[in-house]
Nucleic acid binder design. Structure first.
Length: 478
RNA sequence: GGUUCCAUCGUCUAGGGGUCUAGGACGUGGCCCUCUCAAGGCUAAAACACGGGUUCAAAUCCCGUUGGAACCA
């Protein structure tokens, strides 16, 4: 049988990191075995509908390269792929389930029973619903008479239910622990669980991948499959992605979503790579993986059982690796938006080359290049550096020596500038640092810069560099 | 409270009875390189939650305790 997995997000308007990881594992399970990855939108909960939310789902998956084989936009043999367009199907199966004895009509529903939390009146929790005793014929009559009803699951079994999970192994749960939940609400819409089961079966999903919070309700799902005479899917429950040991990642706590991270200058490829390793390991010491590589080596056996804490530090490091692995042109293209505010004519190619090994997230560019537009106000003491053996006096001398030399330079390349300045140092019996350090400060006004004196000179160009050295000399004179 | 699940450096993890004086990565400290800062190279500190078993031998298997999480109340 062909492997078929599905990603079934609710259109909430953002892509949660934990959900994206679940999608990734679903995708990888399918693709590592030549199967299909299906996208289904679970918009049953009308209250949570957010305009444009499905687009975010589409864009995110596309951006990381997780292309789906069937879905709302491209169709497929098992559509429609949006739950709100499948209402009639759920109702039909709900009634069928009643006929098959897997559920019953219930008339004692309170109106607050169907709120988004799925809160149930306590009377139904563990106790038998009195409506179960109503003969089916009578129930049908009442429905025909227009009485509001819900379809409620029957849990008639006793003893323990055993099911197998790919990650957690065999799990036993007592049927007494299960409650007879609503499957079809009085407005005719299915509950989340019920729609899930019906769709997964009709769409021939082979592996259901979901958070381990669903472990304890899995027997309820299986009971529905059983009542219909269907074969349950293979379950792959994955541990949670945590913010810290106590709290899982959630948008509510202001934790980063995929788009937040991208906005902060993280590369989608790096995010994907990082989350793949949160709860899964390749069995080797390789850490950098493209999606294609993951498709080749993924296996569910190496999925972990315990929750993983999302560590922004490691993501940041990994993002730095991805940035450094970019070609010079690719990096330059990504950096362009950050250069927009600079009006002086700079050598952006040289700037990008200097920046690329120095940043770990794209938005670190801003703090690195703030001096390009204008030299900040700086203290003369900046020219004092013990290791470089410089003082404002030495700097004054150095800049006086350097200025006329630089004015004559025609080859404004890094190599040539470096040789020229070294020459100045040697012929005046100064150390390299005593020339280079003051020049760098004069050009930038900053203690640390992306690149040394000559690299900055190349970035700024000859005219601007000369101008800045002249300005610095005036400051040192005054 | 009931049920289920989980437990190796601060974090992600390797390990599945002897090869473990427990390996790798992030982060942290140090050194080297170096026109500052990075990058790169080297290096250090850092963990088997606890207690019982089983066994010649336990991080590894079993039981309990503790801690945490989820679901249901």
């Amino acid at each position: 049988m062909k492997t078929r997995t599905r990603f079934a997000p609710s259109p909430t308007g953002y892509m949660h990191i934990g959900n994206l990881r679940t999608a990734l594992y679903e995708y990888l399970i399918a693709k590592s075995t030549g199967g299909d990855f299906i996208l289904r939108i679970e918009d049953t909960d009308q209250k949570r509908f957010v305009e444009g939310a499905t687009d975010i789902i589409f864009q995110t998956l596309k951006r990381v390269g997780m292309n789906w084989d069937e879905g709302p936009d491209i169709g497929g043999d098992f559509g429609p792929y949006i739950q709100s367009e499948r209402r009639a199907i759920y109702a039909e199966y709900a009634h069928k389930l009643v006929e098959l004895g897997g559920a019953h009509y219930c008339f004692c529903a309170h109106k607050d029973e169907e709120d988004e939390n799925g809160d149930e009146p306590q009377t139904h929790a563990k106790l038998k619903d009195p409506c179960k005793l109503i003969p089916l014929e009578e129930a049908k009559r009442r429905i025909a008479a227009g009485e509001p009803f819900v379809v409620r699951q029957n849990i008639n079994k006793k003893g323990t239910s055993v099911f197998h999970d790919v990650v957690y192994g065999d799990i036993e749960i007592d049927y007494d622990e299960l409650d007879e939940g609503v499957l079809l609400k009085s407005d005719g819409l299915p509950t989340y669980n019920f729609a899930n089961v019906i769709d997964d079966h009709l769409m021939q999903i082979s592996h259901v991948v979901r958070g381990n919070e669903y472990i304890s309700s899995t027997p309820k799902y299986n009971l529905i499959y059983e009542a219909f005479g269907w074969t349950p899917p293979i379950y792959v429950h994955v541990p949670q992605v945590m913010k810290d040991a106590q709290h899982k990642l959630s948008k509510r706590n202001g934790d980063a979503s995929f788009q937040d991270l991208v906005a902060k200058g993280y590369l989608p490829e790096a995010i994907l790579n990082y989350i793949a390793l949160l709860g899964w390991n390749p069995g080797s010491e390789q850490e950098i993986f493209s999606l294609q590589e993951l498709e080749k080596c993924f296996s569910t056996e190496r999925l972990n059982k315990s929750p993983a804490i999302f560590d922004i530090n490691k993501l940041t490091w990994m993002n730095g690796c991805y940035i450094r692995n970019l070609s010079a042109d690719e990096f330059d293209a990504l950096a362009q938006p950050y250069y927009k505010n600079i009006t002086t004519s700079i050598n952006t190619k040289a700037l990008s080359a200097a920046l690329q090994p120095r940043i770990e997230t794209l938005n670190q560019i801003a703090e690195q290049i703030d001096f390009l537009q204008q030299v900040p106000d700086y203290d003369m003491e900046l020219y004092t550096n013990k290791k470089m053996k410089t003082t404002p006096e030495i700097a004054h001398l150095a800049l006086q020596l350097v200025l006329p030399t630089l004015q004559k330079v025609t080859d404004w390349s890094n190599d040539n500038l470096f040789n020229v300045l070294k020459e100045v140092a040697i012929s005046n019996e100064l150390k390299n640092g005593q020339i280079l350090y003051p020049v760098r400060i004069a050009l930038s006004g900053k203690e640390t810069t992306p690149g040394g004196a000559t690299e900055l000179a190349v970035i700024l160009g000859k005219d601007e560099s000369i101008k800045r050295i002249q300005t610095a000399l005036q400051k040192l004179n005054g």
